[in-house]
């Protein structure tokens, strides 16, 4: 079954240049990480790739898979149809093939950062940067602010989970 996300939310996920991925640390406190979100329309899942250089979030998610992914600021979302979106869900880490496993997401990454291939060609310069785990987020609930979040009540949508 698809995630049944509203089209305008899917537009945000597909276009946004930055998302705030919030995890829960070992003291049960929230920790937020600005990251490039990748979205696969068919699966309804949100993906991130994280270098082992910045692996703290990976450890947090392994201990507690509950996460949220937040989008706001029109310029960062590259769409003005909604003002802010928060997705609650569960994340899973795939670090079974750090060197190449994330490459299946390269087409999605390339769409948002067209220069990424040039950096990838310089892989030998930053070898650890390119050892990357995949974070897969299955949305469970979406909170959408269609107007100014400070004065407009959000719509809360329960979604069916990933396929």
């Amino acid at each position: 079954m698809g995630a049944q996300l509203p089209p305008e939310v899917e537009e945000v996920l597909e276009n946004a240049l930055v998302a705030l991925l919030t995890t829960i640390d070992e003291r049960s406190e929230p920790v937020t990480h600005p990251m490039l979100p990748l979205y696969e329309r068919g699966s309804g899942k949100i993906y991130f790739t994280s270098s082992v250089l910045f692996s703290r979030k990976l450890e947090y998610i392994k201990s507690n898979p509950k996460v949220s992914v937040h989008f706001s600021v029109e310029e960062f979302m590259r769409t003005g149809k909604v003002k802010a979106v928060t997705v609650k869900g569960r994340a899973a880490i795939d670090d079974s093939n750090l060197s190449e496993g994330w490459m299946r997401l390269l087409p999605l990454w390339r769409r948002k950062e067209p220069y990424i291939d040039a950096y990838l060609k310089q892989r030998f310069a930053f070898p650890l940067f390119w050892e990357r785990a995949v974070i897969e987020v299955v949305p469970e609930e979406v909170v959408v602010w269609r107007g100014d979040p400070m004065s407009t009540r959000p719509e809360v949508i329960k979604v069916g989970g990933g396929s």
Partner: peptide, 20 residues
Amino acid sequence: EQVSVSFVDEDGYPVTVPAK
């Protein structure tokens, strides 16, 4: 430009929302 606050909700999920 982007300002938000995160907390853990009653269901144990971290939630990030826009803030002033």
